[in-house]
Structure formats: structure tokens, C-alpha cells
Design a protein around this nucleic acid. Structure first.
Lengths: 204, 204
DNA sequence: CAGAATGGATAGCGGAACTCTCCGCTATCG
DNA sequence: CGATAGCGGAGAGTTCCGCTATCCATTCTG
């Protein structure tokens, strides 16, 4: 039904990404719509989000955990879907991040390695500096401006969902698929700019 | 000097990601700043952009190609840094993309598989539908609105660069590092929204 | 001059994500 | 009824990728 190869499903079962089916006999089990839904979620996280199997397990764990506040759950999920970034941090880049937070009136983020997200940001800015883009951090403010519009739309989209669980799942899906969509649309925008400004014709 | 292990550099040389040094004797070669710069670029593409070695080779090839218009080069580079997406396309999602293009007054994109970028977009929307997010495509317009601001900033940033080659390289670096930065900042915006709207305290 | 390092080439390693194989049993079709 | 295809479960095997390790003759370094 899902189009996923049977051995792959067996593998996911073993890895704990899917709950076991209800055994109706020693070698027959029943799987319902919830299994199918979960399987599709796993595939979406892997294919579109590029998450590792381990990260998917973490995310699912956070989704399934009960008895934590919505905000905390969202935080846990966000950490799970954010890779820290493997670049050695440049102190100047760390300072860029700190200054950015200060401009935005954030009192937090004394330590950039505290969260995967801030580490990711510092890591990206470090990489920029390592290839000679020392002023890349100046893009942070315009980026934030654009992303506020996007985050607002995300919020309204999420708010339409029903239960708290749906919100969490919607957050995960919306964030990861949103990342992919944003990536693609930004490239389209670049191509359009390239056509309009440079022209697709003769001059170089 | 780069901090990259010697055997890794040898590997990159073999893979054609770095040009050979100038031999001063049978087992001694000279590497200049250009080599170092190229090496750092490769690491940035791999670490921050998450590109495979093969994709890096493609990108470098496009950067180094001479005798093509800037616009075409940018197009080639953009294809190289955009993974097509491995999700089976949903016709409804393809239609979402088509409608989006029509709304934006684009006459192109009769075929969504024509470019990695449009394929990526259709792939992401297909994944959204497969997990029950049938209205995700409604986010395309607000996303574009936010991304226009971002693309404008990108353009101004790139325009400050000198030669045509610098523009290409700046485009690659700016796009990939920009992706990472955008991802991180969007998550920060989400966290902020989560704090403000839901509150980080007691209620669920 | 000893010892370390170099360019170049080949082979091997470790992790990740499947995929294969085997087993005994069971659903299904004609 | 019998033949055949398929299942659940578990271990082992495969493939790919990005490095590492080893080796060699030569050459730089202290």
C-alpha cells in the first residue's frame, strides 16, 4: 500500500520506527491506518527532511511522549530535527551570532553550543568566514525580516490543526517540508533575479 | 594550514576536486593560496551544503567552465547544488506547482521534471500530501513573499563582488550557507513564536 | 646522516541504510 | 485438497560513501 519494500518495513519495525502489528496468528499480523500513516511520516522525514534513522527515532519519541508541556515537546522535536553542524566554530562567527541576538533583544544565548539551532547558525557563519565571506552576517537581519513573514504563515498553518499531537506532528512536517520548499522557492527567486538583472542572452 | 588531514587532501586530489600542485621535484609539489582557497570551498560545500563529492565536482566544473554566459553558468551551478528529491511525484502536487507558476506569471515550467529545482518543489509538496497535509501548497505564496525580501538581500550581497568568477563562487557559497542560515533562523523564529503564543510555562 | 615527510597509487575501514536468506507456518487459488 | 506464494521474525550480508592506512622511492629537516 505504501510502496515501500517489505524488507524495508521489516527493518523499520526492528529499528523501532514502527510499532509491531497486532498478531492474529503466529505469522500473521494486522496493520491499520495508523501504521500506514506512521510509515509515510517516516519516509517523509527520511526522504524530504534527510534525517537519519536515529534522528527519526528521536523525533517519533518526542511526538509520542506524553506528559510534557507543548512548548517543551516542540523544543525537543526541534533539537531532534536540527543537525548541529560539523564546522569548527570561529570566535568571530560566534560573536556575530551574539550580536544578532542582542539586536533582537534576546537575553538568552550566552552559549552558542547550548542548542543545535544556534550551533548550526554559528557553524554556517564560521564556514562563510573560512571561505572569505566576512560580511555574510550582515544578511542576518534581512533574512530575519523575510523569515518573520514565513514564520507567521507557518503559525497560522499550524494553528488550524486539531489536537496537541497534531500540532507537534504538523510542526515536524511543516518545518522539514517547509525547509525543502523554501530552498526550492529561493532558488527559483534567484533564477528569476538572474534572468531579470543579468539577462539570459549574450553579455557576460 | 587548512586543518584538513593530509590523506583527505590526497583523496580530494585523486577525485579531481583540487588541482595538482606544481612539481618542484619528483616527490615535492608547491601549493599556493588558490589551492588553499579551493580546499576551503570544498570543505564548505561538503560540511555546510551537505553536498556529495560528486556534486562538489560538478559545481567546481561549472565554476571553472569558461566561455559560457553568466546566466547559463549560474543555471548549471544551481542544478548542481540542488538535489532532485527522491519522492514519487503526486499529480496533485505537480498541479500545485503549475498553479503557483501561473499565479506568478511564469510562462515556463510545462514540465516539472525539467529542472532539479522544480522537481524538488514538487517532491516536497508530494511528501506533504502523502502525510495528509493537503493544504501545504497554500503556504507557497507567503513563502515567496518572504523569500523575495531574502533574494533581494542576496542579490545586493552578490553584487558587491568583483569578477564574474567571484560572482559564481559567491552564488554557490551564498546559496548553500544561506540555506543553512535560513534554516537556523527560521527555527529560532518558530521557537520565539512558540514562547510568545503558547507560553513556556504550565498549560498544554 | 638519521628520521620524518612527500607525491602517488592501491587497498582497506567504518558507518549507514537497506536487502537477503532462512525458518516454520499460513493464506489463497483452482 | 494440494500447490504455491507470502508472512513474521532475526541474523548476516551487501552496497555505497567518505575517508584512512600502507607502501614505495625520493627528498627535505635537524
Amino acid at each position: 500500500m505504501s510502496g515501500v519494500p517489505v524488507p524495508t518495513i521489516k527493518y523499520y519495525l526492528r529499528e523501532g520506527l514502527l510499532p509491531a502489528g497486532v498478531l492474529t496468528s503466529p505469522n500473521q499480523a494486522h496493520y491499520d491506518d495508523e501504521h500506514l500513516r506512521r510509515l509515510r511520516l517516516v519516509r517523509a522525514l527520511v526522504d524530504v527532511g534527510g534525517l537519519s534513522i536515529a534522528a527519526v527515532r528521536e523525533v517519533l519519541g518526542a511526538i509520542d511522549t506524553r506528559g510534557d508541556s507543548l512548548h517543551n515537546k516542540l523544543g525537543a522535536v526541534q533539537e531532534a530535527i536540527s543537525e548541529p553542524g560539523s564546522v569548527e566554530l570561529n570566535p568571530l562567527a560566534v560573536e556575530d551570532v551574539r550580536a544578532f541576538f542582542e539586536r533582537q533583544g534576546e537575553r538568552k544565548c550566552v552559549d552558542v553550543t547550548e542548542s543545535n539551532v544556534t550551533h548550526m547558525l554559528a557553524s554556517a557563519l564560521s564556514a562563510a568566514r573560512s571561505v572569505g565571506h566576512d560580511h555574510f552576517h550582515e544578511l542576518l537581519d534581512p533574512y530575519l525580516e523575510g523569515l518573520k513573514i514565513i514564520a507567521q504563515a507557518d503559525l497560522e498553518y499550524i494553528a488550524r490543526r486539531g489536537s496537541s499531537d497534531d500540532v507537534i506532528e504538523g510542526m515536524v512536517v511543516g518545518t522539514l517540508i517547509g525547509d525543502a520548499v523554501i530552498k526550492a522557492v529561493r532558488r527559483l527567486a534567484h533564477a528569476q533575479v538572474s534572468r531579470d538583472v543579468i539577462g539570459d542572452g549574450s553579455d557576460d
